[in-house]
């Protein structure tokens, strides 16, 4: 992104702004009565019994919180950009942990059992999730190439079929598509297992979205490329394969990566078919011992870790294409 060469004064370093911010933050914390939370407990030496501290307690708690908050911002503002980003990440992560901690979980639960529940989630659930997503993204990509070409063609049948397809599969909720395929196809005499129908639903739904991405990618290549190819006597298929698609890949990769990440998480919807993927296992295992939240949180962390890995891979691929372009 473009970064201006003119350095503006940081508003955080202006006393008036700092004062205003402190008051605003103070008002915000004051609006919620935080005296009977962990913060009130922590300040009990000052405010006495949190429950009886009343207006004074509420004011002290919000005052201390706002000072910590603003001081934190101020200190971070002096650090270098990379350090700033790191610190804020860590702080937000700890806030998230504190949020999860407040559920009062029995975290040991996920490590007990033989094999442990965490290992079960990873060895079976994660494997199935990745397997379903990978197969689906491969099929979706193939659908998208064909769909994009059909949508760009002058052939009425091809265009009509492709646009009907994208309209339908982008227009229905994925969950509904999963049900329709799993329960609808047997009505036509096709007996279809849970995993194939889950893969079919994910492929068709994401194939529809990716058709639009591929179409836009192909269309973004300047007309001159087609003209120069045509003038050399290249045929349509050759132009697409050798000239247009290689140039549109750098344009297609970032949104396709996003689709892949989205699909990975949407694969949790196939749990409704009883497929033993992450989501289904989290619900199944947790429900048995009424430790739902522990298992859901485990699944959440696995999904999150997976998407972080995918994002890193995506960034790598993008960088590679940027160097080449």
């Amino acid at each position: 992104m473009f970064v201006d060469t003119v350095i503006e004064d940081k508003s955080l370093h202006k006393p008036a702004f700092l004062l205003g911010l402190s008051i605003a933050v103070l008002a915000f914390f004051f609006a919620f009565n935080l005296t009977d939370t962990i913060f009130g407990e922590f300040l009990s030496p000052v405010i006495g019994n949190p429950k009886e501290s009343g207006f004074f307690g509420r004011l002290v708690v919000s005052f201390v919180l706002s000072i910590i908050f603003v001081l934190n911002l101020l200190l971070i503002s002096f650090a270098r950009l990379k350090i700033q980003i790191l610190i804020v990440w860590i702080e937000l992560f700890f806030l998230f942990l504190a949020f999860a901690y407040s559920f009062d979980l029995e975290l040991a639960y996920i490590f007990i059992g033989e094999p442990s529940k965490l290992w079960l989630m990873i060895s079976k659930g994660l494997f199935t999730t990745i397997y379903i997503s990978a197969v689906s993204i491969a099929i979706a990509t193939a659908i998208a190439i064909v769909g994009a070409i059909a949508k760009l063609s002058n052939n009425g049948f091809a265009y009509a079929i492709a646009s009907f397809y994208t309209s339908l599969f982008r227009g229905l909720p994925l969950l509904l598509q999963i049900y329709l395929i799993y329960m609808g196809l047997p009505q036509l005499g096709f007996m279809i297992d849970a995993i194939p129908s889950g893969i079919a639903a994910l492929s068709l739904c994401y194939g529809a979205y990716m058709t639009e991405i591929f179409r836009a990618g192909i269309q973004s290549i300047p007309k001159g490329q087609w003209e120069a190819s045509r003038a050399l006597g290249f045929k349509f298929g050759l132009i697409l394969r050798k000239i247009i698609l290689p140039q549109s890949i750098p344009i297609i990769v970032p949104p396709t990566g996003n689709q892949f990440i989205a699909m990975l998480k949407d694969s949790s919807l196939v749990s409704v078919l009883g497929i033993w993927e992450l989501m289904f296992m989290a619900k199944k295992i947790g429900a048995k011992d009424f430790n739902n939240l522990e298992m859901l949180l485990t699944a959440a962390m696995i999904y999150w870790a997976l998407t972080i890995i995918l994002e890193m891979i995506q960034a790598r691929i993008e960088r590679k294409y940027q160097q080449k372009a």
Binding site: P222, G224, Q225, E227, A228, R230, A231, L232, G233, I243, P246, Q247, K324, A325
Partner: peptide, 17 residues
């Protein structure tokens, strides 16, 4: 026919990849 007619464009239209 096109193979026998070379064309040079205002904007070159070379294949950048």
């Amino acid at each position: 026919v096109r193979r026998d007619i070379g064309m040079v464009f205002q904007n070159f239209n070379l294949f950048p990849h």
